[in-house]
């Protein structure tokens, strides 16, 4: 039994307002076991385009449902708590998800998990969709189907003054300690430097694995790690928070796309989400959202499917 204590997105067209109130309550007595929690988003999604009416007619099975979006809300700009009202999640991914939900007529609830647990949570059925700045790689496509929506630009976060003179994911990282989150695509990229480092006669880069951005940033602030490579916007946010202590060494392009993950074996849902995303892009809504969150319009990418063969 699942009890949703929150009532997300009562009126998604009410832009910017406190749309729904998060009502925490403890169900008394024996019902405790059944208690679950789902956070909710401050829905700031623009009105759904006209094409959505047709999609709702085509996919009526999602209308009125509440679906669970598993997120790793440690990435300000994409998904994080609203510092002014921690009961709400905000960010580009949140807005995009809410727009897709409103386009298809369902409501979105949120479940906060570690980055490495995003796809596991989806696979186990504890979540219905993952929109959490996750890169759609072939490897991950074995666990879920992906609909891509954004290009990947990474930033290289270093301590102020870049003492190790790191210039990207290259031999300048040899011998450095890199903080990364478990399951991040940057991990194998940095590990892949080993032969090049060896050839250059330098020690390998070491990797410290954490489970959220905050811990990675702390690792640099505490002097434990020399660098943290992640989405450029995340890196910019960190530099903004600690302008005296951190800086972005450089930006790099990774050969990946950011994707929405949906469970395997649910082609109708996948197609519906993809169609909604296409409609949203065509209506210019994604561009608006990218601007709103200062993410750069060049991130936009035409949706494509990444499924394992």
């Amino acid at each position: 039994m699942r009890t949703h204590l929150s009532d997300p997105g009562q009126d998604v067209s009410n832009r910017g307002g406190p749309v729904a109130r998060w009502r925490p309550a403890l169900v008394a007595g024996a019902c405790l076991a059944a208690l679950s929690w789902a956070g909710q988003a401050r829905a700031a999604a623009p009105a759904a385009p006209a094409a959505c009416q047709a999609l709702q007619a085509q996919y009526p099975q999602f209308k009125g449902k509440t679906l669970v979006n598993a997120i790793n809300p440690h990435t300000p700009g994409y998904e994080a708590l609203d510092p002014n009202d921690p009961s709400q999640y905000i960010g580009f991914d949140i807005d995009l998800g809410e727009t897709i939900a409103s386009c298809l007529g369902f409501k979105m609830a949120y479940k906060s998990v570690t980055f490495a647990a995003l796809l596991t949570t989806l696979q186990s059925g504890q979540a219905d969709i993952v929109i959490s700045d996750i890169y759609a790689t072939e490897e991950r496509a074995k666990a879920a189907d992906f609909i891509t929506y954004s290009k990947v630009f990474d930033g290289v976060l270093v301590a102020k003054g870049n003492p190790k003179k790191i210039t990207g994911i290259n031999t300048s990282m040899c011998g450095a300690a890199a903080a990364e989150n478990t399951g991040y695509v940057e991990v194998p990229l940095i590990q892949g430097l080993a032969p090049a480092c060896k050839a250059a006669g330098k020690p390998e880069a070491s990797i410290q694995l954490y489970d959220n951005n905050a811990s990675c940033i702390q690792a640099i602030l505490a002097g434990r790690a020399d660098t943290y490579v992640n989405d450029v916007n995340t890196v910019d946010q960190a530099v903004k928070a600690y302008p005296d202590k951190l800086e972005k060494a450089t930006a790099v392009t990774l050969p990946y796309s950011v994707g929405i993950a949906v469970p395997k074996g649910k082609p109708e849902f996948r197609d519906a989400v993809m169609a909604a995303l296409v409609a949203i892009q065509k209506a210019g809504i994604q561009t608006t959202l990218l601007k709103k969150w200062s993410l750069g319009e060049e991130n936009l990418e035409t949706p494509k499917l990444i499924v394992s063969k």
């Binding site: 929690w37 956070g39 598993a70 809300p73 440690h74 990435t75 300000p76 994080a80 708590l81 609203d82 510092p83 921690p86 479940k111 906060s112 998990v113 570690t114 647990a117 949570t121 504890q126 489970d211 959220n212 951005n213 905050a214 940033i217 702390q218 960190a238 928070a241 600690y242």
Partner: peptide, 22 residues
């Protein structure tokens, strides 16, 4: 906190991520 239960630790880490006030 690793299984999405919004208890004290998960709330603290999420809040720290969004505010940077570790």
């Amino acid at each position: 906190s690793v299984i999405a239960l919004e208890e004290l630790t998960l709330r603290s880490t999420q809040l720290a991520s969004s505010t940077f006030d570790f």
